[in-house]
Nucleic acid binder design. Structure first.
Length: 786
DNA sequence: AGCACGCCGACT
DNA sequence: GTCGGCGTGCTC
């Protein structure tokens, strides 16, 4: 018997191995295998793609599997199909794709131990086997496989190892608990004794009453592993591993908090259950109760024996949200996100395999969880760009989720107040059914949004008079103000600080970027170059390329209002999770008057006392100068202003130089459909997605001089690929130099998915041939172009 | 991706 | 004379 195996390599090739008579478990598609690979036969982890009786490969070159360590597949057969789609569409190998999703806790290589067992050697050993035993004895019975091999140096090393394991003379230390029930570390009290350390004393006191506590719980109460270890070394406590009870409990189905639905919520809920169509967009403003609808729907699916996966953007997976979901489903839910430890990820992955946990909530990587009986996927805040993986295989979790629901034929619900233009377009094409929640659940009206035209202020300052006046009044009333600025929002765009004029490309309607070295304005969509303009064509003021970040806003505010309690909430101040949590707690408790913050502050948290939101420079919310800038401005304005007055009426002030920009105009008037329609017209006119499929190609060059070579090759490439894509010239990236590498980009467009897929195959091959030794990336459907 | 094999410059 | 640079070719 042979198996076809995918390995974590960037090549479109699978490998065949012979299955020996003795393996821990039988081969099965989707299971993990440990195989020797390459000249040195280093062990690698692979995934079984198929099982064959005969193969078309010279028999003497076929190697034997080292082991199949699990009795269950780590990828469901259907998700393997999904992987193939991802690998095709996003231009990565199958192996890379599989291993991008699989928690690395499952990946074993050379670093596990071989131990001598206690059994008497009663059978005859071959020469090689003898030698292995000898060397193990001299190393007090235990060695890493890698060092054992280095020392032994016999030809049939693995054969000998496998035989010795079979004969029971040596054992392999398990790489991962094949036991499906996750184990957890408990701290048990052994005896009491006077200790000197304050923390140690506290811990002993705590354990005196409980006798036994989960290590993870202790950590939550502020005890550290170090303290526990000290007590272990003193012999007062011990750490044991025990199966957790939670995973064995079947899904609790106590609807702890009865979800009452309003009539329009009920209509949406019922329509998903009827499932006449399979794809839905749950659409409604903040506070319209979208979450209640999807949680109730999820509950109903679990009641019918199906599992549910809820995907959320990175910043949304807060303890708050978790608590809310737990209040409906009990504690037996699977949590999965990038910041979990390897062990935790493995544990959730295994929960999915086992099928006793029915509700999973996670960020983009969770989309591949091998959930048993999966019957519904919910994608909350579907427009959020954190669903796009920014590494190979650059997949978009929303798209993968849609594909997964198609392959398994179950419903999917996208949820958003400000859907992506892509999704809106699909609704328009009737590929997705829109379920709209028109009114807010509470009677609190949406915040009144006032636009302040910065062009009309006499001289430029960060705060308009109107904003300052309202800010003072709000703080006097004892309420909070949130000033929003997106610091990452300025490249060297030619942006006039006195009238807000933005210099755009005449072909692409995208802001031009000023390049210092070349002293030129360059369009990052088509690469067209323009002579720089140093004076604003509208008001003749000098064009500046500077920006205004949170720090500067905070500083100026402190000078204006020395008595206000001001706090800054951005990547810098939130870096440390515990201080971040503290700041958020303090804000909720009303310890601050004004919060100056970036995107980070505007997501996932409800600040009850917040009644005024100020958007300082709405023009900059687009971030990168690409065709999606308008969409991002729109979404950001709606989201940030929506933070105001969740519990009592609030207001928002949007400062801008361009009040006529569609993204700003329609957002503040709450005329969302008008925005989408206008945006679609613009995209159609310029042939941008969703009317085409975009591929971002990027080169990272060590020396700028190699650009000539690349450009020449690129020219030839253009000819070969022009029947699949429209390809502009290669041009410097908006961020032309990052960590010493010179970046050049080109944005390819294919008319539809079919052209894209056939074009990508050739693209990949051509790149492999032409750009050897050059760092490049190929990203399909990029969410931003920087 | 990693790693080995292979053919040309500055050094004991 | 050799050590070592990284170009290219392979991995079941």
């Amino acid at each position: 018997m042979f198996v076809e195996v995918a390995l974590d390599l960037p090549i479109d090739q699978t490998f065949y191995y012979r299955v020996p008579k003795v393996v821990s478990y039988l081969p099965e598609v989707g299971k993990r295998v440990i195989v020797p690979f390459g000249k040195n036969d280093l062990l690698k982890t692979g995934i079984i793609l198929s099982i064959k009786d005969s193969i078309d490969y010279s028999p003497e070159k076929v190697k034997e599997i080292f082991d199949i360590p699990d009795n269950f597949p780590l990828f469901a057969e259907k998700t393997l199909e999904l992987t193939k789609w991802i690998s095709n569409y996003y231009c990565a190998s199958i192996g890379e794709t599989l291993f991008a999703f699989l928690p690395s806790g499952f990946v074993v290589s050379e670093s596990f131990y071989i131990k001598l067992s206690n059994r008497e050697i009663s059978v005859n050993l071959t020469e090689s086997e003898e030698k292995i035993v000898e060397i193990l004895k001299s190393a007090s019975g235990r060695l890493k496989l890698s060092s054992l091999r280095r020392k032994v140096k016999v030809s049939s090393f693995y054969q000998a190892i496998k035989n010795l394991i079979y004969k029971g003379i040596i054992v392999r230390e398990e790489f991962i608990k094949t036991d499906l029930i996750p184990k957890e570390e408990f701290v048990v009290l052994k005896r009491l004794e006077k200790v000197r350390g304050k923390k140690e004393k506290e811990l002993l006191q705590y354990l005196e009453t409980l006798k036994k506590a989960k290590l993870s719980d202790l950590k939550r109460y502020g005890f550290t592993r170090q303290t526990v270890n000290k007590l272990v070394s003193k012999g007062l406590v011990e750490i044991i591993e025990e199966k957790t009870t939670i995973a064995n409990k079947p899904q609790e189905l106590i609807e702890k908090k009865e979800i009452e639905l309003t009539p329009s919520q009920k209509r949406a809920f019922e329509e998903i259950l009827e499932a006449k169509t399979k794809k839905f967009l749950l659409y409604g403003v903040t506070g319209s109760g979208k979450m209640e609808v999807y949680l109730k729907t999820a509950f109903e699916f679990v009641k019918r024996g199906r599992s549910v996966l809820i995907l959320v953007p990175e910043l949304l997976l807060t303890p708050e949200l978790r608590a809310r979901v737990e209040s409906y489903f009990g504690s037996n839910i699977g949590i999965y996100h990038g910041k979990l430890s390897q062990k935790e990820k493995v544990s959730t992955w295994l929960k999915a395999v086992k099928g006793e946990t029915k509700v999973f909530i996670g960020t983009r990587g969770a989309v591949m969880l091998p959930i048993k009986d999966l019957g519904l996927i919910i994608v909350d805040e579907e427009q959020d760009s954190s669903y796009k993986e920014q590494q190979k295989p650059y997949y978009h979790a929303r798209e993968v989720a849609i594909k997964r629901s198609e392959l398994d034929n179950f419903p999917i619900v996208l949820v958003s107040a400000t859907p992506s233009v892509e999704t809106y377009y699909r609704v328009k094409k009737k590929e997705i059914r829109k379920l709209e929640l028109k009114e807010r659940v509470s009677n609190v009206p949406l915040p009144y949004i006032k636009v302040v035209n910065l062009q009309k202020s006499k001289r430029f300052s960060i705060f308009s008079e109107e904003l300052l006046k309202t800010l003072e009044n709000t703080v006097k009333k004892g309420e909070q103000v949130f000033l929003f600025i997106n610091r990452r929002g300025f490249f060297s765009t030619s942006f006039c600080l006195s009238c807000g004029f933005i210099v755009e490309c005449e072909d692409c309607c995208v802001p031009l970027t000023y390049h210092k070295q070349e002293k030129q304005l360059i369009c990052h969509m088509c690469g067209k170059r323009y002579k720089p303009i140093y004076r604003c064509p509208k008001c003749n003021a000098r064009l500046e390329f500077k920006g205004y970040g949170t720090e500067r806003v905070e500083e100026e505010l402190r000078i204006l209002y020395p008595n206000f309690k001001i706090v800054r909430l951005d990547q810098d101040t939130i870096k440390n999770p515990s201080t971040g949590a503290r700041i958020i707690k303090d804000i909720k408790e009303g310890k601050y008057d004004v919060i100056v913050g970036t995107q980070i502050a505007s997501k996932g948290h409800n600040f009850p006392k917040l009644t005024l939101v100020g958007v300082l420079m709405a023009d900059l919310l687009g971030g990168a100068p690409d065709y999606m800038a308008s969409e991002r401005i729109f979404q950001t304005i709606v989201h940030t202003t929506g933070r105001a007055g969740r519990f009592k009426p609030g207001a928002a002030i949007v400062q801008t130089f361009n009040p006529e920009l569609p993204a700003i105009k329609w957002a503040v008037e709450y005329k969302f459909n008008s925005f989408y329609e206008e945006e679609l017209v613009a995209r159609k006119l310029l042939n941008y997605p969703p009317f085409t499929k975009g591929v971002l190609v990027e080169f990272q060059l060590e020396k700028i001089s190699s650009f000539q070579k690349i450009e020449k090759e690129f020219g030839k490439l253009k000819e070969t690929l022009s029947s699949f894509f429209s390809i502009p010239d290669i041009s410097p990236a908006p961020l032309p130099k990052v960590s010493g590498k010179y970046r050049f980009i080109s944005f390819f467009r294919a008319v539809d998915e079919r052209k894209l897929l056939s074009g990508i195959k050739i693209l990949k091959k051509e790149f492999l041939n032409r750009f050897k030794g050059i760092r490049y990336k190929i990203e399909v459907d990029p969410v931003r172009i920087v």
